[in-house]
Simulated scan of single mutants.
Amino acid sequence: MSLATVSSLPTTAASERPALRLVPDGSEARGFALYVGLDEAKARAAGVDLAALVDALRTLTAELVPTAETYAAVALAPAGLGGRDVDIVRRALADRAPAGTPQTRTEQRRTGLTLDLARKKLRIDGETAPLTYREFELLQFLVLREGRTVSRTEIIGALWSDGDEQEVPNERTIDVHVRRLRAKLGDYGEIVRTVRGGGYRFDRHADVVIRYGEAPSPDRF
């Protein structure tokens, strides 16, 4: 599962490090928290387990500052929950801004992603996303096949079936379209998953709402 623990300071010289500016007047820094988004499968793929990673980070911290105290906590979440690992860790460990701490503009406006298939609109944190026609069609195609891996060939056949041969993309071009779509999805880009050797898949995110409208989309099955 995802992990939160104390890690090391940067290795740059102390004189080169910027001074902390996040401590309000009348208070002092007593430590810090580092949230690590990493599930067990990814850790195993990298040849390490979470317990070993915790031990390594604690050892490094002790080497740098022998008097430092560390505390590690594992963040648990329902299996299959969508979203960025590090965001799930923060929510699971009840990360909240201290009272009186002003929220940033982004934090104040974070309301989720709403995809309205009937009106062909996508709203991200309350604002309409500037998707092109092709980007919206690509997202809709994946959403209507939620949980199923869709190959690049299938995407080409469905979304470019009416174009002339010069307009039909190759599989590499599909990857470019997906990257551009993810960039516009911002913090919600991981709802479009890459399945190695298979293609792409839409995974539902806790902050994502899909509106199908009163009549079913002609693409829905």
Rank of each mutant, 00 (worst) to 15 (best):
R193E: 15
S8D: 15
Y35I: 01
H177L: 02
T5G: 11
N170Y: 09
P130D: 03
P216W: 01
Y212G: 12
A73R: 05
E28K: 00
V176Y: 14
V23P: 11
R105T: 15
L53W: 06
T70W: 10
G213E: 01
E69M: 09
I155F: 02
I156G: 06
A14M: 07
R134N: 13
A158K: 02
V209L: 08
L181F: 02
G80I: 00
T104G: 01
P66K: 05
A99W: 13
Y200E: 11
A129E: 04
F136R: 09
D116T: 05
D164S: 02
R96P: 10
G198C: 05
L93S: 10
L50P: 10
P130G: 00
A41Q: 11
D39A: 00
A33E: 06
H177W: 04
L185F: 01
Y188W: 07
K121Q: 14
G47C: 01
F221C: 14
G100D: 09
A45F: 04
T111K: 04
Y71V: 15
H205D: 11
T128N: 14
A129M: 00
T149V: 11
V176W: 12
P66Q: 00
R30Y: 11
T106I: 14
A33V: 12
W160K: 03
F221K: 14
T67N: 12
T101F: 03
S2I: 09
A14W: 04
R148F: 14
P24I: 00
R134Y: 08
V192G: 08
H177I: 00
R148E: 15
I191P: 10
V150C: 00
A94W: 10
R58Q: 13
R180G: 13
V143Q: 05
L57D: 12
L181R: 02
A19P: 15
L159A: 00
E40V: 07
P218L: 00
R30P: 13
D175I: 02
V168L: 10
G47K: 03
V143A: 07
Y188E: 12
G197F: 03
F202Y: 11
